[in-house]
């Protein structure tokens, strides 16, 4: 039987992310400025680089149209490469939101179609026929000199901090999508993103990277503890069930024993009575 991939849903890909508001193009202009800017940022746009609100509205509409025209599998390639937590049935808008959050400039392991999607989300005009090396070079050029210097600086600090705390090389586990809402909640959660501390600091800065790592470590610790508590509760429930079963069996065995004793007593008295009747009849009839 062929496995059909789940249909995209409008549900949020994970609890911390709200889905993009479905605002028709004509209504975008009516949005308050801060909401419009937030929407633009979520779609990977720079609100400050647009002179007027109308320019920003046009850019948002254009980006939404570009997202709508993107190949969903290519978007999933990017999400997999960036190891972003999304459900396999996430909609294109949700995938775009996650892709816009990816700041990495290490394109190793990204497919060509994924690279085109990433380039489009970073504001480049690509047709899909350009060589990937050229696209990667253009993306690096688009980053800008100061941003690149800042990233290199963060990378050095990250390596220094990682070396200082003696971080081990994380194992590259296979990427797993988040379970969709239709799937059972008992499914095992996907493994946390195994990213090096140095890379995190390179992407988010010293404090952002360390805070992110502390948060992830705390999350992992909390999840472990919750799993332990759940297992302990399960063990207790099994123990209670087993003890109740034993108590039920003992109770029934006890009742049957009482019934047997009563029946033995009744039979003994009946036999005695029979003997007495026989003797009395024997002597009376003589």
């Amino acid at each position: 039987m062929a496995h059909e991939p789940p249909k995209p849903s409008d549900a949020p890909s994970h609890p911390g992310i709200s889905p993009l508001p479905r605002v028709p193009g004509s209504k975008l202009a009516d949005l308050p400025a801060d909401e419009l800017e937030r929407l633009a940022e979520e779609l990977g746009l720079e609100p400050k680089s647009h002179k007027t609100k109308l320019h920003l509205v046009a850019a948002v509409e254009e980006r939404k149209a570009a997202v709508g025209a993107m190949d969903r599998d290519a978007m999933l390639d990017v999400v997999r490469w960036g190891r972003r937590p999304v459900a396999v049935n996430a909609s294109k808008e949700q995938l775009a939101l996650e892709i816009a959050r990816i700041k990495s400039m290490r394109f190793d392991g990204l497919s060509i179609r994924g690279l085109m999607v990433l380039a489009t989300m970073r504001g480049m005009k690509v047709t899909g026929k350009e060589p990937p090396e050229a696209v990667a070079k253009a993306l690096a050029k688009q980053e800008g000199f100061f941003a690149r210097v800042a990233r290199k600086r963060r990378a050095i600090v990250g390596k220094w901090v990682a070396g200082m705390i003696g971080e081990e090389e994380p194992a590259d586990g296979e990427y797993q999508f988040l379970p969709s809402e239709q799937q059972t909640t008992a499914a095992a959660p996907p493994p946390a993103r195994k990213e090096k501390l140095a890379e995190e600091i390179e992407e988010s800065g010293l404090f952002g990277g360390i805070a992110s790592r502390v948060k992830k470590t705390a999350d992992v610790y909390l999840n472990q503890k919750l799993d332990e508590i759940e297992q302990r509760i399960d063990r207790k429930l099994d123990e209670i069930d087993r003890r109740l079963g034993e108590w039920r069996d003992k109770e029934i065995a006890n009742r049957i024993r009482i019934m047997k004793i009563t029946l033995w007593a009744s039979v003994a008295v009946a036999a005695l009575s029979l003997l007495y009747s026989y003797v009395s009849v024997y002597f009376r009839t003589r």
């Binding site: 069996d249 029934i252 065995a253 049957i256 024993r257 019934m259 047997k260 029946l263 033995w264 009744s266 039979v267 009946a270 036999a271 009575s273 029979l274 009747s277 026989y278 009849v281 009376r284 009839t285």
Partner: peptide, 30 residues
């Protein structure tokens, strides 16, 4: 698990009924 004990109970009931009937047989003889 309780089949043995239940079988004993059933046999005791049968024995009781037989003894009960034996009483009436003795009364009939008398």
């Amino acid at each position: 698990r309780f089949a043995g004990d239940l079988a004993v109970c059933v046999l005791l009931c049968v024995a009781f009924l037989i003894i009960w009937r034996a009483h009436y047989t003795i009364y009939g003889i008398e």
